[in-house]
Design a protein around this nucleic acid. Structure first.
Lengths: 138, 138
DNA sequence: ATGAGTGCAAATAGTTTGCAAGCTG
DNA sequence: CAGCTTGCAAACTATTTGCACTCAT
């Protein structure tokens, strides 16, 4: 069920953040989403009058800092967020036309961080998104 | 020296695009840039009155379509462009504080496309950027 | 000469900020 | 009840579009 929401709520508290009606709704929306959502999309999927769009932006930003959600980017630069499904870092293969997305568990994060450390970099993170045209659209 | 500019100009013509004073300047700016640049940054690095900012945006977009430049994204969603140095796809490790970047030749593009084809996707491309804090800044 | 390319102005999309009021722990 | 959160309005940044004019081929 919404165990992912419960996990998120625990992390929320661990990070000293408060649980509000708005935040809970946003977390539930993310939990129900099949694909990573932008702030605008998350907001639209909320029941009417749940909160202001600005609040969605602010919550998602907080969630990201607390590592409750993962952040990605669309081809056009729009930021998108998704709940760390169960857990584990992952990426998406998104259809350029219809927007559906497949989860891709493959990730070269380890090699990447090793390479980054080789350059003396710390606090390394990465963004990766794959785009294509899905079978239905082509 | 600016053989990369010459290569770019050839590709330009192959794609039926015209060579203008503005485009040449933009290509030269990109060739001199050490790191991927946004449209705004590319524009600023141009000699005064070379062209309008809008033209920079339009040219970069055209260059991307013609595969003359590679496009990436910053952590904040800003689009950045760089000349396909020599050639070959690559990525960057960018310092979050000072903005310098190291080139990373590692890329899992092949595995990625294989996975994408497994899902029946075509016309696959990907965006990947790595961020961290460089030795000087930490 | 003809259509690709450019400049200028104005519109958009996405996101951020300021501040007073509200609600959580 | 202190201070994290929210709402509303407004500012901002990055990017796009419309249209008349210009220049490369």
């Amino acid at each position: 069920m919404n165990s992912s929401v419960n996990i998120a709520i625990s992390k929320l508290k661990e990070n000293g953040l408060r649980l509000t009606r708005q935040r809970k709704a946003i977390l539930e929306a993310l939990a129900n989403a099949e694909i990573p959502c932008s702030a605008e999309e998350t907001f639209s999927s909320l029941p009417a009058d749940t909160c202001d769009l600005v609040t969605a932006y602010r919550c998602l930003e907080q969630f990201e800092r607390a590592h409750i959600v993962e952040r990605g980017v669309r081809e056009n630069g729009t930021k998108v967020y998704c709940l760390g499904h169960g857990h584990g870092h992952h990426h998406h293969l998104t259809c350029r036309k219809c927007g559906t997305a497949e989860r891709i568990d493959m990730c070269m994060g380890d090699e990447l961080e090793k390479a980054a450390e080789g350059f003396g970099y710390t606090d390394v993170s990465h963004v990766m998104e794959v785009f294509g045209v899905c079978p239905e659209c082509s």
